[in-house]
Structure formats: C-alpha cells, structure tokens
C-alpha cells in the first residue's frame, strides 16, 4: 500500500483528515492514498463518513485539520470550481443535474465550462460542442433522450446523465457517490461496468462509494473500508473480504471458514 505522506506519483493523498459537526466526529483522522488508474471503492456502514469524506475531498466542505493532495499538490481549502478545473469530477448521492435543461444542454454546458467558454456572451451556444456532447450521451446510453428535459428522464437515465456531465470535464479523478443508488440490480452492474470500461479506456482514476457489495467486489480494484470516521482496512477485494475487522463491522462477528 502506498504511503500517503510520500505523495509523489499519487493522484490523491489524504493525511490525517478530520471533520466534526457539532459533537459528532464525522471524519476522524483519515489517511488515504489513491494511485493513478485505480478503481477504488470506499465502503462502510451508514454513518461511516463516506459522503462527508467525499465532500471534503471535493471542496464542498472545509475540513478541520489534515491535508489533501491532488496530483501531488496541496488543494486543502480550494473551492469546488477550482478543483474541477484541476481535473476533479464528481457525482452526488442524490442525483444532481440541471433539471429544466435538456440532456444535451446539460452536457453541452459542462463542455462549455470545461473549455472555458462560459463567460462568452457573443456566440450562440446551441451548436458549440454539440457533437462532443452527443457522442458522450451515446457512450452512456442516452443518445435517444438527448432532446428531452432532463428532469423527466427515468431515474437511472438521470444517473447516467450526471455521469456524462462529470465526464465532460475530462477529469483525472472522478468521485462517484453511490452512483447506483435507487437502481435495479441489473442496471447497477451495467452502469458500473460502463464506468470501469470508461476508466480503462481513458486512464481515468475513479473513487466510488457503494452499498451493493456484489457491485463493489465485482468492479473495484482496491477497497477502503471506513468505520466511524476512520479507515478500518484497505486492500484488494480478496484481502478485504478476508479481513476479520471488516467482518466484525459488517456481520457482527468474523466468519469462520
């Protein structure tokens, strides 16, 4: 396992990260390191601090103490739009899209912003990055839905759209917070297979949280287990599966095989 304090060559390195809300220590000294090209699952029971950790990494929340390095540079305290410019993309546990824009416009807007055209007030935007946006929609399986207001799309399609929005920014690191929340099992596997394919094709690093352990163990290359705001275990899926602490947390007792 890579040491987060030697952050060279790591896409994401986190040292001693802490965040409390009132009296609750949501993230309590997390160390984490992610190598480029990793497909990392962060798992843990409800309240383990997964979403808080994501919000800290992505600049949505300010941490109390600790450091965050992205691509070798310290990014602690940078606001989300700056982090996004540096190549961080993310999706949310609760689908977060531009509901009254068409699916195409959703992705087009992300492209416009990525290419720093978003302060341009002279060109008509309708044709800009249209082909790129359509290609990306095709990739996530939404080509047919491109013209529809995204707010009326089916839930699973909205999740795919959010993925496309995040991908339009050509991120180096993609944080997916429960990307399959609310989906049927079949669709879950589909969408995670898609994520894995895209990651494989582009060399994109993905860190995701997920409740469905089938999905996690099928897709993840490495797994980090959070428990009560700290890292309980980390390793390849097989190691994590065999880890006694993890079994205690999830099952109440180790599985004696």
């Amino acid at each position: 396992m890579a040491d987060p304090s030697s952050r060279q060559g790591l896409i994401l390195a986190i040292l001693g990260l802490r965040k409390h809300f009132g009296g609750v220590q949501a993230v309590n000294g997390v160390d984490l390191s992610v190598e480029p090209g990793d497909l990392r699952a962060i798992i843990g029971p409800n309240g383990a601090g997964k979403t808080t950790l994501f919000n800290l990494i992505s600049g949505d929340l300010r941490h109390d103490t600790g450091r965050i390095y992205f691509g070798g540079e310290e990014v602690s305290g940078l606001p989300p739009h700056r982090l996004c410019r540096r190549g961080l993309g993310r999706t949310f546990q609760i689908t977060s899209i531009f509901r009254r824009l068409s699916a195409l416009e959703n992705v087009q807007t992300a492209f416009l912003s990525h290419h720093r055209r978003h302060y341009n007030i002279l060109l008509p935007a309708r044709r800009l990055y249209r082909d790129e946006a359509l290609a990306l929609l095709e990739r996530v399986g939404l080509r047919e839905q491109a013209g529809k207001p995204s707010g009326i799309l089916a839930h699973g399609d909205q999740r795919r759209l959010e993925l496309a929005i995040a991908l339009a920014g050509a991120p180096r690191l993609l944080l997916l917070d429960e990307p399959t929340a609310g989906m049927a099992p079949r669709e879950r596997h589909e969408i995670m297979a898609l994520v894995a394919r895209i990651a494989g094709d582009t060399g994109l690093t993905v860190v995701f949280t997920e409740h469905d352990m089938d999905v996690v163990f099928a897709v993840a290359r490495r797994i980090t287990v959070l428990h009560q705001g700290t890292v309980l275990a980390e390793g390849a899926p097989a190691e994590v599966r065999a880890n006694g602490d993890v079994q205690r947390v999830y099952l109440g007792q180790p599985v004696t095989a």
């Binding site: 531009f98 509901r99 824009l101 416009e105 807007t109 007030i121 935007a125 800009l128």
Partner: peptide, 14 residues
C-alpha cells in the same frame, strides 16, 4: 443564448 447564458441557467437550476 450564449455560453454565458447556458452557464447562467445551469447556475439557476443547480
């Protein structure tokens, strides 16, 4: 109708 306008709508929406 410009990219600025698109981005503005995205800010409105979310």
């Amino acid at each position: 109708d410009s990219p600025f306008g698109y981005a503005l709508r995205s800010v409105r929406e979310n």
